[in-house]
Design a protein around this nucleic acid. Structure first.
Lengths: 153, 153
DNA sequence: CAGAGGTTGTTGATATGTCATCTAACATAG
DNA sequence: CTATGTTAGATGACATATCAACAACCTCTG
């Protein structure tokens, strides 16, 4: 570990500007979401992940993998969201240790209410600043990295 | 706000995969950093921002802008980092409300110690998965978005 | 200069995230 | 079947982030 392959100028610019962009964007979007809806940014992500599924349900560990969250974070967060009525937990028949998180009617209502403001902000800060081909390049690139993250270590 | 311009398929893919990539990457990198060094991911960012400056100092509000952090978050975080000896605060002569954050010797030492492992992880998870032109595209794109974020609202 | 309004940074209460540890259940080797 | 190791998830103590309120100072206008 002593002869590290440092980043060259291109690599460093790409990585650092991406990180700073992300920090700034997350800050803005989290503030917007909190101001205009009852959802936090993490709440929003959980609900988005659940609505990705046709039945709006997912095993806890899978949700954790998708979001890249520690299991205890997820457990606490889902507990809070359950108290607020945004999701419920259901037992899993095939694995009695396991549980599903399921989005509720109320959860759907809240994310639908939050979505317009959020999407508008995403447009203003990100999407509308870029060309279609830049957006495609981002999508493809992120897809590659995500696939790599899914590989076993 | 009732006729929202929703994202089309390309835009949505780009935005969502970028967000999920970021969440996953941040999770992995934060865990790596915590395991291999005494720094958290936020600590690392603060120190990187400071080492960007030739004199290793920055006004608090400016650091907050660069990172996209609330001022109170920054204030608390800098206070903790000060206690650990990673940075110090110095009064500002030209504006007596103000203060500078300055990286200490110890801070430089810690970030230099943490950097190799971090960079190696960044390579493994991100940089090495992409071609030079993909990286350049990312860098340019992020630069555009960052510039837009700097515009007055 | 007075005063109104904005900016810089801090504080303390509360919300959220992390870490270590735990229980229950599964998987499999013998 | 049973002992060993692994996985799913919950829990409580602690670390970190957010929110609202505040004090001190600047800036500008009259």
């Amino acid at each position: 570990m002593d002869d590290v392959q440092w980043l060259n100028a291109h690599e460093e610019r790409a990585w650092r500007s991406l990180q700073f962009m992300q920090m700034r964007l997350e800050g803005e979007l989290a503030r917007q979401l909190a101001a205009d809806s009852g959802l936090s940014y993490p709440d929003y992500f959980v609900l988005v992940a659940l609505t990705d599924r046709p039945d709006g349900r997912m095993r806890l560990f899978e949700l954790g993998d998708v979001l890249g969250w520690e299991k205890s974070r997820l457990s606490h967060h889902v507990a809070r969201m359950t108290e607020r009525g945004l999701v419920t937990k259901e037992k899993c028949d095939s694995d009695r240790r396991g549980a599903f998180v399921v989005i509720t009617k109320r959860g759907r209502k809240e994310i639908e209410a939050a979505a317009p403001g959020h999407v508008t902000a995403v447009r203003r800060l990100f999407v509308d600043r870029l060309t279609p081909s830049q957006l495609d390049a981002i999508g493809e690139t992120a897809g590659i990295v995500l696939a790599a993250l899914d590989e076993p270590r």
